[in-house]
Design a protein around this nucleic acid. Sequence first.
DNA 1: AAGTTGACTATTT
DNA 2: AAAATAGCCAACT
Length: 117
Amino acid sequence: MKDRNYRVYAAVNQIPFGRVATYGQIAEMAGLSGMAREVGYALFDIPSDSEIPWHRVINARGEISARSLPGAGAELEQRTRLESEGVQFDEHGRIPMKLFAWKPFQQEDPTAQSSLW
DNA sequence: AAGTTGACTATTT
DNA sequence: AAAATAGCCAACT
């Protein structure tokens, strides 16, 4: 397994329940600035039984990124998982980023931040 | 070793 | 607002 994958997973694990982050955002946090695509590849390698909240990673437009390969069920499962966390989709299948985007530096309680950030 | 390929993004139509 | 364009960069061919 590639080293960078673990950094990606560590970043994804920071995303709180019910919030979402973009590929670029995760790349930045993983020290992979400018390599948003690599984040997608790393997520692809996550085993199905993993605890990593991969479904909380969406693209910058606020929608679930389409896979190129067959497994068409992945997008559907991602949406289902998000909805079960309370994340809502608009009539165009997009998530209102104003409401659900994770903002690591603008949390409700700044004093409760982990030492990491 | 040059060309292709994307779970991407920002800019321009 | 949506679609096309153009950068992007590591991994494969």
